[in-house]
């Protein structure tokens, strides 16, 4: 009896960490774009869906080797991010916050429409990255994909930390975010960094989607809910904070899986809204205060 309780708890926790890691990746993508441009990109979830769909097509349709399909999809969606900036955001002469939000919302609908044209309404899935059947731990059993998901989040977090804390390029990107004009005066090409941020935003979304594809079904409009949960995670952790995105994503994932497991599954999808509203009312700066404030 004791041990089934334990294994059940372990199962819930790992399930939470797994979906939480995906939310964290979406939230990191949000912050990547927000930090440099102050654009709250409501199409972030669509980047995730596009990453998954592209990867599935390249792998199952075009029969490319898995690693090639993964890398190519990341690059392709990164480029979609750049195009998004180039054709939707940059042409704006006088961008206001409201206009930008509407624009990214329009962009999200557009990307969904394109996905509907290409992939139709059918759900797709992908094989797990490794052939192992499942892993047992403390009486609970997991898909090996879970290790890929959590491992990728760890690696991505480390790479981002290294980039922003240890390289001048990363610091220049932070400088752009804080004061674009002063950064230009130092010779930083702000437009290039805006482009890089949209590329990375797209790429991070794609990575989330590709990791998720083997453990769930991907449909053309799957991005909307994921985008919302990623956004809730970013706000929960403190919008703009990278550690906050990771913490926010994991906390939301855990809350969802524990409430689904112990209370009822009806909470699963409304929880993100509740968390979003609560944090905006109680502590709008999020759980993790940014080091620069």
């Amino acid at each position: 009896m004791e041990s089934t309780h334990l294994s059940q708890a372990v199962q819930f926790i790992f399930a939470g960490l797994t979906s939480g890691s995906i939310y964290a990746l979406v939230a990191l993508g949000f912050n990547m774009i927000y930090n440099v441009t102050l654009v709250v990109n409501l199409a972030q979830g669509e980047f995730l869906m596009l990453g998954a769909m592209t990867m599935i097509s390249l792998y199952s349709g075009f029969k490319l080797p898995l690693p090639v399909a993964l890398v190519l999809s990341t690059l392709i969606v990164g480029c979609v991010g750049i195009l998004f900036d180039r054709f939707a955001i940059r042409p704006l002469k006088k961008p206001s916050i409201m206009l930008l939000i509407l624009l990214t919302l329009g962009g999200s609908t557009f990307l969904k429409g394109v996905a509907l044209l290409i992939w139709g309404k059918d759900p797709y899935t992908a094989p797990t990255f490794t052939k192992l059947k499942s892993i047992s731990f403390l009486g609970a059993s997991f898909s090996p994909q879970m290790l890929w998901i959590i491992g990728t989040l760890v690696v991505v977090s480390f790479v981002l930390w290294f980039f922003f804390e240890r390289t001048l390029l990363g610091k220049a990107m932070r400088a752009c975010a804080e004061n674009p004009r002063a950064a230009s005066l130092m010779g930083v090409n702000v437009k290039t960094f805006v482009m890089i941020s949209f590329f990375l935003g797209g790429a991070l979304g794609a990575v989330g989607g590709m990791l998720m594809a083997p453990v769930s079904f991907m449909v053309y409009d799957e991005g909307t809910m994921m985008g919302l949960k990623g956004f809730a995670s970013a706000v929960l952790g403190g919008i703009g904070s990278y550690p906050g995105a990771v913490v926010g994503g994991l906390v939301l994932g855990l809350l969802e899986s524990l409430s689904t497991g112990y209370v009822s599954s009806i909470f699963k999808d409304i929880l993100a809204f509740v968390v979003l509203l609560l944090i905006l009312v109680i502590k709008p700066t999020g759980l993790m205060k940014r080091s620069d404030e």
């Binding site: 610091k171 932070r174 130092m186 930083v188 080091s291």
Partner: peptide, 15 residues
């Protein structure tokens, strides 16, 4: 750049 250290601000000059 308020969110960077003094040294990092100086390094930004070398960008």
């Amino acid at each position: 750049f308020k969110s960077l250290t003094t040294l990092d601000n100086l390094r930004m000059g070398t960008y």
